[in-house]
Design a protein around this nucleic acid. Structure first.
Lengths: 325, 325
DNA sequence: CTCACACATGGAAGCGCTTCCATGGCAATA
DNA sequence: TATTGCCATGGAAGCGCTTCCATGTGTGAG
């Protein structure tokens, strides 16, 4: 293509015979410009193959054009779970409509978001699985353009699936289908949504006079398989397992299979999320939906359109009965 | 935290009692600085909670600090496949070691990479599933910091799995285990790697005096299920199906199940990629490995460390025999 | 004791862009 | 014809940072 150095706004302005200011106005579409200038600039742009420099633009306009998605406390395994992928795809979609890009950032638990969020080239920030401390590290200037997927702080709009009622639906189904000794595999304990789910489980167990059996998980399949062993060893008479993630439930299925346990005849298994694979497993997984796309879209829109929702919005989760429970 | 406006390098310099130049040198670690200046600046930085602005830095230094991953021709479904996720995670890892971020970009088939790659705040570019035209749109200035995952052009280092020998291994296994009428489900036809795999399949079929049965796929599970129907309708005596993607193979498994076909008794099924779910399905999937992490790491390193590899590197794929074939 | 040299330092010039502001031209009004 | 007002325009001032260059300051060699 063109020479070594790529064309700048100056080159365009010169080629069009207008000032840089005018060229800028035409290109950004902000501010007045005569039809004549508009034409000449447009022509110069295509002729020179001019593409505005995002960094310079962000710096000058003090508002970037990129939506950052920060995933808190993620291990490498998290992308085995379609979850982040779905958030990402959806956000990218919404962002693309507004001609902004997306970037993905893994933020270790306890790390600061300051570096990430301080950059001028950021148009917005969506924090996935936020913790209070992490959210507090986002600079004031960025607060208005931040949303959380999960349970956030007061000054940041938050979006999450209704883990409580979702869990309620699943566990109630287990109870209604005659299961007596129902175990639960949770997720990472630092996630507030895990608490809500565990609370819901405890509630039902208590109300129906059942004993609780909880082992902690991390949303991975590997952990699910291990949890299956652990559960059947500690409580051999368990007749149902509810995992707070489909991936984990799939692992549980596997672990149970390995022990020669029949599903759902001996033990019922239920998950949470309704991932694409849930209906591909044998037996197909009974689970509860997780409207990730809706949630991610809401978060992305809240950030990009500055929706002034500063409350937490919960999205309903509905039971999907298949073969495993 | 601090006031409305966040601290700039000027603030730090002032607080430390040095010039902006010196402060910059200390912070970037480039250029000389006395121990005294270093201390004072470091203190000022922590005191003010100073975080450098990425946009300004990129603009001034003419070299960004972000690794962009552009996925060509991706549909929303692509993230159901762990593939992109694995690329992303690995790249993010390598990038993080060098304190650079990653960003992900969906580039429609036929779209230009110019806008993406022209930005000064880009440290490198990794193009996934590149097409020749797409690669040609990356500005000269960026060429040196670009790598391809897939088959690229001469001036860009490329990394890919050896689809040819991988396919060879799988199909040969099918042949060796006595399968006679082996069908293949391919991937998107615009991907060169699909050609290589199809060629390998044709080769073996021809060499062993077998007839070829090819239906085209798109790497999704949905398409796999449909392909299973299509294959069994067109060629009811088929006794093996090889899909160029595990996701598709899983779909095939599902489609075959739906028709009451036993696997592997009636029909053997083999995939490609060895995704995490491959061993979770019933029956567990026979497949061939795809060292995505190695490939992505090589690509990321080639870009970040300016490795002058301007050739295509193929990574070996090895057969994994499980239950389905 | 002098000269040369290295090193730490600050001033200043940008990087490529947006945007404020003052200017000038033109049509509409009186 | 003189006055008002509006709109298109260019000049210039940054955005926050890096980096070149010239200036001091202290050290070792002669």
């Amino acid at each position: 293509m063109r020479g070594q150095r790529s064309a700048t706004l100056d080159d365009v302005a010169r080629a069009a015979g207008v000032s840089r200011a005018t060229a800028s106005r035409v290109i950004t579409g902000q501010g007045p410009a005569s039809a004549r200038s508009r034409d000449r600039v447009t022509q110069a742009v295509t002729k020179l193959g001019y593409v505005p420099d995002a960094a310079a633009r962000a710096l000058a306009s003090r508002s970037g054009t990129r939506l950052a998605i920060a995933v808190i406390g993620a291990t490498a395994a998290i992308l085995d779970d379609p979850y982040v992928g779905r958030v990402l795809t959806t956000a990218a979609h919404i962002a693309a409509e507004r001609e902004v890009g997306v970037s993905l950032h893994w933020v270790p638990l306890g790390a600061s978001l300051a570096t990430l969020a301080s950059s001028h080239n950021l148009g917005g920030l969506v924090v996935v699985n936020p913790t209070q401390p992490a959210l507090h590290t986002v600079p004031k200037a960025m607060r208005g353009r931040t949303a959380a997927i999960g349970v956030g702080t007061k000054d940041v709009p938050s979006f999450d699936v209704d883990n409580g009622s979702g869990t309620d639906g699943v566990v109630r189904h287990l109870v209604n289908t005659g299961r007596q000794r129902i175990a639960m595999v949770t997720g990472p304990s630092w996630l507030p949504c895990v608490d809500r789910a565990r609370d819901a489980y405890h509630q039902i167990m208590r109300d129906s006079g059942r004993e609780t059996r909880v082992v902690s998980g991390d949303f991975t399949a590997t952990r699910g398989a291990a949890a299956a062993m652990e559960i059947m060893t500690r409580w051999p008479d368990t007749d149902a397992v509810f995992a707070l993630s489909d991936l984990t439930a799939l692992g549980v299925l596997d672990g149970l299979h390995a022990q020669g346990i029949r599903i759902p005849a001996d033990v019922a298994v239920a998950g949470f999320d309704d991932i694409a694979f849930a209906c591909l497993s044998r037996p197909a997984l009974t689970t509860s939906t997780h409207p990730v796309e809706e949630i991610a879209a809401a978060a992305a829109r809240a950030v990009l359109d500055r929706g002034n929702t500063d409350r937490t919005t919960f999205f309903p989760s509905t039971l999907v009965v298949r073969e495993s429970a």
